[in-house]
Design a protein around this nucleic acid. Structure first.
Lengths: 140, 140
DNA sequence: ATAAATGCAAAACCTTTGCACGCCT
DNA sequence: AGGCGTGCAAAGGTTTTGCATTTAT
């Protein structure tokens, strides 16, 4: 994987400790955190960083296509450093958001383009259900 | 189509002029309006109706599965009286939201269930692109 | 040097909530 | 009488904005 700082530079974004910390945190998690969650996770290592900076950074990264924003139907956005379009599975019981490998739906964009008059640029696919963990706990 | 009032009654929702107006407005449009848009659209016929009532009604209809809530990535929700799960096409240029016939993606839930350990209950599928109208105006 | 990023506070925005009043049975 | 729905105002929560200061290049 390319150095995160390098990726920022290529998009003409100045490399600041705050941006690196946020980008790195997002790159190393599978949790799809919200702005608030990111802010709290970095509180100990970056105690002076403000929530506004988190929002501004997420906006910059999003516009640079270095991260993507998720809308799973909550009151806030979540963020994902995997920018390649892929479906997400959301557990309605524990609210966990899990990545799904996009290969299983590889052909659907093509199908949509064929059956609509839109030029498709992007897609967001969310499946809601019960995750394996929660299924198990319900059985007990 | 079943009478709207009848549908409300079946869900143990009292039939009020406000609820009927909102439900009817949603049933007769393909525009996927937001709460604010609904409120403004009904302003002339129901001048005393408050925005809070719109929100409360939408919540009641949603919980009764008479409408569904859409998250197309804007700052507010949109609503759709077609409750059968179907993909939506969003024009990134004019922000129009269009229904797509779900038959074109009939098999995907099945595929997701087969390739994940989730029990799938619902899905939200959004495609972002340029609609025919906007494609045309860009060419000029 | 200078253009951009940060941090703070305030504002904006959508949505929810509390409560009194009204309506209908 | 009783329970629910409405409308108003206020509150809540997330996100954005303005501005002075600091920082990166």
């Amino acid at each position: 994987m390319k150095e995160l700082a390098q990726q920022l530079k290529e998009k003409n974004l100045k490399v600041t400790p705050q941006r690196l910390a946020i980008f790195q945190m997002l790159s190393n998690t599978v949790e799809h955190p919200s702005a608030e969650t990111i802010y709290k996770a970095l509180e100990t290592t970056h105690p002076t960083m403000s929530l506004a900076t988190v929002y501004k950074t997420l906006d910059a990264l999003k516009k640079a296509s270095l991260i993507q924003e998720l809308n799973v139907g909550e009151d806030c956005f979540r963020y994902d450093a995997r920018t390649h379009s892929h479906p997400h599975l959301i557990c309605v019981s524990c609210c966990k958001v899990v990545d799904m490998d996009s290969i299983y739906l590889n052909d659907i964009r093509e199908r949509v383009e064929k059956n609509s008059d839109f030029d498709i640029l992007d897609e967001k696919i969310y499946f809601y259900g019960v995750c394996p963990n929660c299924k198990e706990s319900k059985e007990h």
